[in-house]
Amino acid sequence: MSKEKESVLEGFKAFLMRGNVIDLAVAVVIGAAFTNVVTSVVKGVINPVVGAFGRQDLNQYSSCLKAPCETNDAGKVVRGIPIMWGTVLSAVLTFLITAAVVYFLMVLPMAKYLARRARQQAAKEEVQEVMEVSELEVLKEIRDALVAQRGPGPSGSAQNGPGRNTP
């Protein structure tokens, strides 16, 4: 095998071994299952509520373009051009319900969690920064206290520091 093919295979292997691929696969499977739940809610709850004002199945709502629509015994259109706007309405309702559930049950709580976590991290960094500054101040105070205790050295200066007494 050539080096280029090996590097492509190595790259593909690295791609598969990353955690993101697994996360995406799980998201697709959960999303497919969730779609079935939302579709059932639309067909079992939303369509009958809308049907209280008309037909019970939204998919039956349609208009005919070009002459009256006629169907044969099998339900196939033999004359006219039907516009199935009820099917589109059902799909739009399914999408809106799915989007609302995803937003209110997943996106919004995660955004609040991440914002709270960011505030906690910022507070922790601020405390760390204050501690570093106060440690520096304490060390300076200790240094000044030691210099003051030592008193003036042989040269008459207390500013030379420990071990630096020069005549």
Rank of each mutant, 00 (worst) to 15 (best):
E4S: 11
L9C: 10
E10A: 13
A14L: 10
L16D: 06
G19F: 12
I22D: 06
D23H: 15
D23M: 14
I30V: 13
I30T: 09
G31D: 04
A32K: 12
F34A: 14
T35H: 15
V38C: 00
T39H: 11
T39D: 13
S40T: 13
V42S: 04
V42P: 01
K43P: 00
V45D: 03
I46S: 02
I46W: 00
N47L: 01
N47G: 05
V49P: 00
G51H: 06
A52F: 15
A52N: 10
F53K: 10
F53M: 14
Q56A: 10
Q56T: 15
Q56C: 04
Q60I: 11
S62Q: 12
C64L: 02
L65E: 14
P68V: 08
N72R: 03
N72D: 15
A74K: 14
A74I: 09
G75Y: 03
G75A: 05
G75P: 02
K76Y: 07
V78Y: 06
V78L: 08
R79K: 15
I81R: 10
I83N: 00
I83W: 00
I83Y: 01
M84C: 06
M84R: 15
G86I: 02
G86A: 04
T87Q: 12
V88I: 11
L89F: 07
L89Y: 04
L89S: 06
S90H: 07
S90M: 06
V92N: 05
L93D: 01
L93S: 04
T94Q: 12
F95Q: 08
L96D: 06
L96R: 01
I97T: 07
T98V: 08
A99I: 08
A99P: 09
A100C: 12
Y103M: 08
L105K: 10
V107P: 05
L108M: 02
M110C: 04
Y113G: 01
Y113C: 04
Y113S: 07
L114R: 14
L114G: 03
R116G: 02
R117I: 00
R117E: 10
Q120C: 01
Q121F: 03
E125N: 12
E126G: 04
E129R: 15
M131E: 15
S134C: 06
L136Y: 05
E137N: 02
K140Y: 02
R143P: 05
D144Y: 00
A145L: 12
A145C: 03
V147F: 08
G151L: 13
P152S: 13
S155Q: 15
A158N: 08
Q159G: 08
P162V: 10
G163Q: 07
R164W: 08
T166K: 12
T166H: 11
P167C: 11
